[in-house]
């Protein structure tokens, strides 16, 4: 089997002081293979965005290790750090807020090349930027316009073009379509899938819309209060959820189908329902087919029956 492009081991990110400690990311481990999409879902405040931001170094991690392309993030040389920043990119939720309103699209896309001192010849650089625009379904006439002249969907395309400018191996997409209309969401998702197929890049797709996540992801991880509750193959996780939190989350998603909506019964989730003893060891246990669930030994035995 190929080596994962990203491996996260026991990642921790805590905020606040000793008396008021928030364990936003609490001992999270997973990996992303080249060319695959890992969906990271959970409710607001579960730590999914913090996980993404910590991986790309927007936050300093509290503990654990991040291996990108086989190299440990802590022991990178200056040159390797530059590589890291080129090959790992991010797309943000709000396309309005993530583009500088005073810069033209050309300047926005050019900025990264300035910083990394690439494509210094004018002609070469222009060519490269036109290619980027075309790869996200925009055209070269758009290069001289400002962000406010674009619709929400087009702005998100600009954000994606910027993320693609260094031929990344992994893009962390933090709720990239939540701010867009349904019909535009479909356009952007199709485009992201096409780009993935052409370039073989991997996505860490962070979202709360479970139907879209299922559609785009190969594997899915469910987070709750800073921990991964369940991780596995996308359809396996939806068809055969083990953890009561996953079941609760899935049962809450309304479907565009009035008949099944009348039948749908929501199941609640309350941590106390586990009734864990203090001496029980809680960890991700393997339920087969790389489907891992966070549970105690007792639960493992009763759920696998």
């Amino acid at each position: 089997m190929a080596e994962p492009i990203l491996t996260v081991n026991n990642l921790k990110k805590h905020f606040g002081s000793k008396n008021n400690l928030v364990k936003a990311v609490d001992d999270v481990s997973f990996h992303v293979m080249p060319g695959e999409t890992l969906g990271l879902v959970g409710e607001s405040g579960c730590g999914k965005s913090t996980t993404g931001r910590t991986i790309i170094n927007l936050y300093d991690k509290t503990g654990g290790e991040i291996l990108f392309d086989g190299k440990n993030n802590d022991s990178l040389s200056k040159k390797e750090q530059k590589q890291f920043h080129q090959k790992l990119q991010m797309i943000f939720q709000d396309p309005y807020a993530s583009l500088n309103p005073r810069m033209t699209v050309f300047e926005i896309l050019e900025e990264g090349y300035d910083i990394h001192k690439l494509y210094k010849k004018k002609k070469e650089r222009r060519q490269k930027i036109y290619e980027l625009l075309e790869s996200v379904g925009l055209n070269r006439e758009h290069a001289n316009r400002y962000p406010h002249e674009f619709s929400g969907g087009q702005r998100q395309r600009i954000g994606i073009a910027r993320a693609l400018s260094f031929d990344p191996k992994l893009i962390i997409a933090d709720e990239p379509i939540s701010a867009l209309d349904v019909s535009i969401q479909a356009q952007v998702v199709n485009m992201m899938k096409n780009i993935q197929r052409e370039r073989g890049l991997a996505y860490l797709f962070i979202a709360h819309d479970l139907s879209m996540v299922k559609y785009i992801s190969d594997r899915i991880a469910v987070m709750y209060k800073g921990k991964i509750m369940e991780i596995g193959d996308a359809s396996d996780l939806y068809d055969r959820p083990f953890h009561p939190y996953t079941k609760s989350l899935l049962s809450a998603v309304p479907q565009p189908d009035p008949h099944s909506e009348k039948e749908r019964r929501r199941v609640g989730y309350d941590e106390s329902m586990h009734g864990y003893n203090e001496d029980e060891e809680l960890k991700l246990r393997d339920f087969g087919n790389s489907h891992l669930v966070y549970c105690s030994q007792k639960e493992y035995e009763s759920w696998t029956v």
Partner: peptide, 30 residues
């Protein structure tokens, strides 16, 4: 939902993946 007549309604219904959507198929867009 079950007998829409306007092409725009078709577009809206088609562009939303439901939980049973086939991944290999492209999402329909308007």
């Amino acid at each position: 939902f079950y007998n829409p007549q306007h092409p725009y309604t078709w577009g809206l219904l088609g562009s939303m993946p439901d939980m049973n959507a086939d991944k290999k198929e492209e999402l329909r867009t308007i």
